[in-house]
Design a binder for these strands. Structure first.
Lengths: 242, 242
DNA sequence: ATAATAGTGTCTCTCAGACACTATTAA
DNA sequence: TTAATAGTGTCTGAGAGACACTATTAT
């Protein structure tokens, strides 16, 4: 402690590397997918040719905050500007990056499926791809990204049980049947229609937005999220015991 | 490892300062308190003479990980070795520390009230004190610690509604009436005894540990937490709507 | 016995789930 | 009309809350 005070203005501690990584989820073709990037085949980079979460170093000249950095990287990768973005946690230790002691700040984002199936790349040559979460978990990801991805999936699975989070995986306006399908995809089990509708409508986070043009069968009411800043919590979990 | 380290290019980004801060909660005298430290009256330090959360720089030579760093600082401050410790989040931006772009990693800890009312200080001369959360929120804390404290209180208040977290605020073994009082202190409202007991016992996280020596009235069953690694979730919130 | 605290039984209300029912659309 | 999908009504059961009741201890 005394050393700190002795060193006048700047602390003399060696500074760790500081990065931001993103876990970007989307539901496509009735499957939960995550965006991964392929690290370049360059031996001077760590983990060349391995799949990784999109991310990179905080640039103190460009990023005013960690959140800004995450927003910037999300925009660069996907073009999405107003997503659901939540901090997931940080992972920092001496060995996760061969370049030295590093701390990464993982953010958790939910976006709706892109229209054209995939995103255009920015100037960089990195290849990126939407990969089903089951498959992604089986890959040998770079750094400790497997652990971060597992934590993100745990958080999503847990929050889906009692919050409106999955609504952020849909393009607005969306219908209740679409929302229910999204819940079922993320939960991995089917839900009762009547209970589901009561629950969603009672939670009060939906706003009617005109009839949707159903392509088959009866048309459904379209909804928007009343407040995109945060998800709402339900008074109970989906399945009580078991 | 060493060959990799040597061959890898080191990034040229300027590195932010990296710190860890702790929000340590305890219930004393039927009040929720948080441990704060007084920053030294030294003009070369930022925020001299202000109250702050305990914490400091990550020492890459001593700390193998962020979590290790948090455990070390908690031990230095309180002597507690096996607390409930959970990552709260990270706050990083260009202006929160006058010494430069910095990122802090806040951890959230619950410990039981110390026997002697306060903790002995380590070698350092920093003054530390348990302060009721209401009072702490009114102080002008150093850095962005007011914001971090508010986030910690939000997390605690929210989790108390549906998890066994408050059990970590008690010394083992504890009785159900003690546990209920702890919940009531954190929630700021009273709870029905019958409903409370059914809920706790049904959740299955308690283990009987012999009768406690009640000083007055009927003696109560003592309990220990079955698994201190994590809190359990209840199937419902405490008060459903309102 | 009394005071004080620990612990239980019973009723009611709310709400989730099950499931059968009706409603609206396109072909 | 039929197929397909959207949406509703009704019953039941689990569990939370209210609250009165019993149980055990020290004095």
């Amino acid at each position: 402690m005394k050393e700190i005070r002795a060193s006048v203005r700047r602390p003399e501690f060696e500074r760790p590397l500081v990065t931001v990584d993103l876990v970007i989820f989307s539901v496509q073709d009735d499957a939960l997918k995550v965006l991964l990037v392929l690290r370049p085949q360059d031996a001077s980079d760590p983990f060349p040719g391995r799949w990784a979460l999109p991310g990179g170093f905080v640039d103190v000249t460009k990023d005013r905050s960690l959140q800004d950095c995450a927003v910037r990287k999300l925009r660069e990768k996907t073009g999405v500007v107003a997503p659901y973005l939540e901090q997931l946690g940080s992972w920092g230790d001496a060995v996760r990056d061969p370049r030295g002691w590093s701390a990464t700040h993982a953010y958790f984002s939910l976006i709706h499926a892109p229209k054209d199936g995939t995103f255009k790349e920015a100037a960089g040559a990195t290849e990126s791809q939407w990969i089903a979460v089951g498959e992604a978990s089986r890959k040998r990801l770079a750094f400790d990204h497997a652990q971060i991805l597992a934590a993100a999936m745990g958080r999503l699975r847990s929050k889906v049980e009692y919050t409106s989070l999955p609504a952020f995986l849909l393009a607005e306006p969306f219908t209740l049947p679409q929302l229910q399908r999204t819940y079922e995809v993320v939960l991995g089990r089917s839900l009762d229609k009547s209970a589901f509708r009561k629950r969603m409508l009672d939670a009060g986070f939906l706003q009617e937005a005109g009839m949707s043009d159903g392509t088959l069968g009866r048309t459904a009411m379209g909804y928007r999220i009343r407040n995109r800043e945060q998800a709402v919590s339900f008074p109970r979990m989906f399945r009580t015991g078991e």
